[in-house]
Simulated assay, not measured.
Amino acid sequence: MTRTPQGELFLLDSPLTGEVRGERSLMAFPFFALSKNAWMKSLAYSTPSVSIEVRPSTKGVATIYDKEIVLYIASLMASKMEDGEDVSQDFVFTAHDLFSVTGSNHSSRSYERLADALERLQGTQIKTNIEAGGEGVDGFFSWLSEAQLKYAKTTKGERRLKAVKVRLCDWLFRAILHDRQVLNYATAYFQLGPIERRIYEVARSTCVDGEDLEIDLATFRLQIGYQNQLANFRSALRAIAAADTIPEYQLRLEETEAEVDPAAPKAGRRAKNSRVIISRRLKQLAN
């Protein structure tokens, strides 16, 4: 529902009344850094069919937590489309509603993090061969081409944040508007850690029609966007599989010992052949 705030000249697109949703390509591929802190290195993902390059701004690459803002905007847009409203690339919403939807507290620190996140989303540069709305982009774009914090003065002369105004990039706007590959998110997503969030997204975008996802560990690491060593990723997945906290999906890590290559360095040590298997939970399939 669009409302006019008292004493303001702009319209609000919040509150979000529908589900949290995201564009399928952003679920399937690693566009964001798996970090809460600033990630200052470039990210890259490449397969025979998909290439992604992400360059940091002075505040770093947009993180998986900054992505919450993108999901919120995508959800606002999808809800407006479902209601038959006209949509544009400009969105105005309250930080209060954003925090309520994503489960963030309403502390002053959250508002500071919001400003930093908006700056990273506007400053991060992305290049990909993934087409959106039937069009490709040969060059870099940012998630937000514009991001502003709208303030009002109190009677004491203090600034109070009234709304956030953003302009969504052409690439993502076309994808949502024309491709219509928008999927809902489980509400528990926002309580997950960075790796668990990416596992959920990959599973949600891949496990269609009840089919399992089976993938080797090294390939899965690339798709998740995990930047540390494979051995560390294996340890992390073991812990995640044991905790079994991925909403709607169950993750298994199957490990077998590889054959020993006598000619290889450190002969006699057996490496692990590891495969990741993700299944939709049976109770979800029954619904």
Rank of each mutant, 00 (worst) to 15 (best):
N273G: 05
L118N: 01
E119W: 04
G18S: 14
L192Y: 05
Y249A: 01
L71W: 12
I195D: 11
H96C: 09
E248K: 13
Y72W: 04
E254Y: 13
R269T: 05
R234W: 09
E211P: 06
Q284D: 15
R109M: 11
W143I: 02
Q223L: 00
L114D: 00
G134N: 06
S75K: 07
A239S: 14
E259P: 01
K59G: 01
T17E: 14
Y111W: 07
P265Y: 11
D66E: 02
S25C: 09
E254H: 11
I126F: 14
R180L: 08
S100M: 11
I69R: 09
I195Y: 09
R3H: 14
A186E: 15
T4L: 15
Y249W: 04
C169D: 13
A74N: 03
D116Q: 06
L9N: 12
E8Y: 08
A62Y: 04
E248L: 13
E68C: 08
Y200W: 08
W143E: 06
D83A: 14
R204K: 10
K41V: 00
G133N: 12
Y249R: 08
I246N: 04
S57T: 02
F141G: 03
K266R: 10
L253I: 09
S35M: 02
A186P: 05
R252S: 12
I278A: 06
F190H: 15
R174D: 11
S42I: 00
E68F: 11
S14M: 07
K41N: 09
D179C: 11
L285D: 07
A147Q: 01
L9F: 08
I69T: 07
T124N: 05
L12N: 00
W171G: 10
M81V: 05
A264W: 04
S235L: 12
R270N: 01
P247E: 06
D216R: 03
K156E: 11
F141Q: 00
N228A: 14
A271K: 14
D13S: 13
F220G: 07
K165P: 04
V260M: 07
L9P: 00
I126G: 01
L282F: 15
L237H: 05
R197C: 01
E259W: 07
C207R: 08
A188Q: 14
R238H: 12
L26R: 11
L222Y: 13
G193H: 08
A132K: 05
P194H: 15
E68Y: 03
Y65T: 00
Q89E: 02
D261F: 05
Q181N: 13
E255M: 09
Y72V: 02
I215Y: 07
R55Q: 12
V202S: 06
R238Y: 10
V182A: 10
L222D: 15
Q191H: 12
H178L: 14
L282D: 14
G134K: 09
K41D: 15
